[in-house]
């Protein structure tokens, strides 16, 4: 049970980590390019609507049974929430603040990392929260294609009609989901206490 929980956590953490590494930087760049951003959003959105079992079935054909297929599917689903939330977060930055950053002559990457990323962080966090929760739920399907994690307990329990095993797996997933929500709650509360981001005293021009 413990090893299944740990495997489940690892599956989700890697998936969200990989997805964030891809989605956040590309969203920071594409937020300034509305056309390209719309294209990528549409693509990721389309991917997101593919039923998970169908996607897993396709992946298993090409990648084979096991955790790799599960991991790819998890990343594919996590990308959308993280990408969109980052774009929305960057777009919500007040014009004055973007202008000041531009007027200081900061190079593009410095502007994105020092100004835009921290300012968009509340939105990004909510995207990560949704992606993590989604991954925890979705990773159980991995049990269907021979992946590790709590899904393996669930599907074995299902196959054996073993109620105790089913309950064990289900409760594990619920516990993980609650733990993740709690962790993000704490993180957001801590940020809430620390001075928030934005420009202080940016008044709209008369």
């Amino acid at each position: 049970m413990i090893s299944a929980i740990l495997a489940h956590i690892a599956l989700c953490a890697i998936a969200v980590g990989v997805a964030a590494t891809i989605a956040i930087p590309s969203a920071l760049v594409l937020a300034e390019r509305p056309r390209a951003e719309r294209g990528v959003s549409a693509l990721l959105g389309a991917l997101y609507t593919v039923p998970s079992l169908a996607l897993l079935a396709v992946l298993v054909r090409f990648v084979g049974l096991g955790d790799t297929s599960v991991e790819i599917a998890l990343v594919a689903y996590a990308l959308y929430a993280i990408f969109r939330s980052t774009v929305v977060g960057v777009r919500a930055i007040p014009v004055e603040q973007r202008e000041v950053a531009a007027a200081l002559g900061l190079p593009p990457w410095s502007r994105r990392l020092r100004v835009e990323l921290p300012s968009a962080m509340p939105a990004i966090l909510s995207g990560l929260r949704i992606a993590t929760l989604g991954s925890i739920a979705l990773a159980t399907l991995g049990g269907y294609v021979g992946g590790s994690g709590l899904g393996s307990i669930l599907f074995t329990g299902f196959a054996l009609q073993n109620r105790a095993m089913l309950l064990e797996g289900a409760l594990g997933v619920v516990a993980l989901a609650l733990a993740s929500e709690g962790a993000f709650r704490l993180l957001e509360m801590r940020r809430g206490r620390s001075p928030s981001v934005g420009v202080v005293g940016a008044f709209p021009k008369r």
């Binding site: 004055e96 603040q97 202008e99 000041v100 950053a101 531009a102 007027a103 200081l104 002559g105 020092r114 100004v115 921290p118 300012s119 001075p195 928030s196 981001v197 934005g198 420009v199 202080v200 005293g201 940016a202 008044f203 021009k205």
Partner: peptide, 17 residues
């Protein structure tokens, strides 16, 4: 160009983070 020009606007625009 911009690095050689100082710029301050109404309300300053300090970054709060």
């Amino acid at each position: 160009l911009r690095q050689s020009i100082g710029y301050a606007i109404q309300g300053v625009g300090l970054f709060a983070h």
